[in-house]
Amino acid sequence: MSIVAEILVSFALVVSGIFGLVGSVGLVKLKNTLQRLHAPTKATSLGVGGVLIASMIYFYAKYGQVSFHELLITLFLFLTAPITANFIAKAYMARNLGDKDVPETTGEYGWSIYDDPPSPGSDR
């Protein structure tokens, strides 16, 4: 493996390590659940991304084969991470907040956690 590839792999790994660490620091430092939700959804995605880039460069430089698994991991991560965050946010809102704690909707119906969806036939 050439020195250039080694430098690139190490750089990607160090960057991803820093972002992973920052994500964890955020979990400790921020004070409420909704703020803590920001740390793992963002700082960690670049952390994982860095490891995946490093892995792709490594396998290309060492064995000369292009690996697509990393791209798929990225794809599946981007599909699942927002959904997890969304469910945590919803569960927190349902348990700890009421509809007076969040701003009003811009339409005539309330937020879906506190209000029923329009039933077919009714028009409010």
């Binding site: 920001h38 981007f78 927002p82 969304n86 946010a89 339409g107 937020w111 956690i113």
Partner: peptide
Amino acid sequence: LAGTITMTPGTVSATLAADGSAILVHCL
């Protein structure tokens, strides 16, 4: 859109209005 909001600058999408006419975003 909700997924994009969650993945991008300092914002997490929390919930939708019951009729889907608005989205509630939490900003760090």
